[in-house]
Amino acid sequence: MQLLLLVRDVQANGHMIAQLDPLGLDVLDDLDLGLYGFTEADLEREFYLGVWRTTSGFLSGSRPVVTLREIIGKLRQAYCGAVGYEYTHITGRDKSDWLRDRIETAEPVPYDKDRRLVVLESLIRSSRLETFLATEWPTTKRYGLDGGETLVAGIEALFDRAADLGIENMIIVTSHSVRLNVMANVLQKPMCQIFIERTVRLRPVQGDGDHTPIYTGTGELHLQQGASCDLPT
């Protein structure tokens, strides 16, 4: 039970100690074995994982007996490296298992330099757009993508994979918080068009009876716009 609590905790919260700072300036708390009743002396202790054969991930591998050191090493590799994952909030068991199978691999998924540069470019584009919008319209409700910039790189990868599988048309529906960034950086909607829609002010429309103009505006309609495009793959 203690080991199970340790594994579940890292799966759910390992992203909190992931090494996301490329400069190494952030000092993060390390995994405290004492919270789960373990000590350094238990690292070479072997645990039988046969009872977990029905679970997915590397803990359901062909080796039923594994040391605590190996288990922690695999958990660190999967959840506390340069990429953090949050998926345990997903209610569907089949969906969370599908993600865990792709996170808890025997070896980390390799990314060559070219692929890393593509992801970096996507992150920079999405981050710079949010910075510009926050600076240009500091008092306007904009539902920013701040903190979720990886979504842009993820959608681009999704489109590429869909094309590999022969899918020709896709329709995506997004929340307010990501719409502007997705339209600009994924669907390649012209920035000038997006900015024009954001700067539309109150405008008069003809009133009834006394011909008094009634002023109306777009409200949040600029966040409810859409876009379509043909993307090369």
Rank of each mutant, 00 (worst) to 15 (best):
L3V: 01
L4G: 04
V7K: 00
R8D: 12
Q11G: 07
A18G: 02
Q19P: 00
P22R: 06
G24L: 02
L33Y: 00
G37K: 00
F38D: 04
T39V: 09
D42S: 02
R45A: 09
W52F: 15
T54S: 07
R63E: 10
P64S: 12
V65M: 15
V65N: 13
L68E: 00
R69M: 01
R69A: 03
E70M: 05
I71M: 02
I71D: 02
K74R: 15
L75Y: 00
Y79K: 05
Y79T: 02
G84V: 03
G84A: 10
T88H: 04
I90E: 10
I90Q: 11
T91M: 08
R93C: 01
R93Q: 14
D94E: 13
I103F: 01
P110V: 03
D114I: 12
R115Q: 13
R116S: 09
R116I: 12
E121Y: 07
S122L: 10
T140Y: 05
G148A: 14
E149G: 10
I155R: 00
A157G: 13
L165C: 12
I172N: 04
R179Q: 13
V182H: 05
R201T: 12
R201P: 01
L202T: 10
H211S: 14
Y215Q: 11
T216R: 15
G217E: 13
G219W: 04
L223M: 14
Q225P: 02
S228P: 00
C229S: 13
